[in-house]
Computed example of a mutant assay.
Amino acid sequence: MTRHALGLSALISALLLAGCTAISGLDGLTFDDLGAGGRGGAAPDAGSDAPGAGGAACEGGACSAPSGLALTDQIFTPLRGDANTGTPVVHECPDGEVILGYEGSLTEPDPSILHGQIQARCGKLSLTGAGPYTITTTPGELTPSEGTLGSAPWEMMCPEHHVVVGFSGRAGSFLDRLVIDCAPLLVEGDPGAQRVRVGPVTSPEGAGGDGGTAFEDTRCGVHEVANLVHLIAERGPISAFGLGCKTVSLTY
């Protein structure tokens, strides 16, 4: 048998190492203020509040501040009314603008009141503040008027700094009544993970008659706003009405 001489300090170190190896279940212990996951453990959850969480805008230091707004990904809502009679019409607001309301004219009640002309009031979006942020609107251009009838003018505008996000009303062969849905745009989320969301929806007083059949409330998506007029018109009243919507996002 070959014998190896061990010094006292080496013997103690060997015994301590063997004892630590034999003990299990130490993952929850803390040494020198470091948990088991502190160094070499599991990475912090990507959705946690750990420093740097919140997206690429925060990588390498402080989170970038948003500098503006963008409109992307055009979609269309269903048309309400008779979409098979007349000519489809699309009028988009100028680049970067959204719909703030509508104006037009109603026909005489013979036999019912109908929407004879419609055009949209567009407006510009602006991002203000330095956190928290606010999205404001400034009235812009009118889209071309569609429809050729009507002698009773009307105007239907969203409250200040609100935008059109949907509509409801009544329709049959033509558009009888129109009510718009309006909402503010809110910037929510932690720095580096902020996004734009549609706020609480309200509706100003509608315009039109009580003919036709009520149709369901028709909305853009939770991050979308109306940016174009989509309707059916044929040398007379408006046959069908809808919206084109785009997603609002922050730019950096």
Rank of each mutant, 00 (worst) to 15 (best):
G7S: 13
S9Q: 12
A10Q: 11
A10C: 09
L11A: 15
I12N: 02
C20N: 05
A22C: 01
I23D: 05
T30H: 13
A36E: 01
G38V: 03
G38N: 12
G40H: 07
G52D: 04
A56V: 09
E59D: 12
G60I: 09
A62L: 12
P66I: 05
A70I: 04
F76S: 15
P78E: 14
L79I: 06
N84K: 15
P88C: 10
D95C: 01
D95F: 07
G96V: 05
E97M: 09
I99L: 15
L100H: 11
Y102A: 14
E103K: 11
E103Y: 04
G104Q: 04
G104K: 03
G104V: 00
P109E: 01
D110A: 02
D110H: 10
S112I: 09
H115L: 14
Q117S: 15
I118R: 11
L127W: 00
T128Q: 08
A130Q: 11
A130M: 11
G131V: 02
T134G: 00
T136R: 13
P139M: 03
E141R: 07
S145V: 10
E146Q: 09
E146H: 05
S151G: 15
A152I: 12
A152G: 02
W154I: 02
C158S: 09
P159V: 10
H162P: 01
V163T: 10
V164L: 15
G166Y: 07
A171K: 01
L175N: 07
L178E: 02
I180Y: 09
L186V: 07
E188S: 15
G189C: 10
D190Q: 11
P191G: 05
A193R: 01
R195Q: 12
G199H: 00
P200D: 13
A207E: 06
G209C: 08
G209Q: 04
G211H: 05
H230R: 12
R235M: 02
R235E: 14
G236K: 07
T247Q: 15
V248L: 10
T251Q: 13
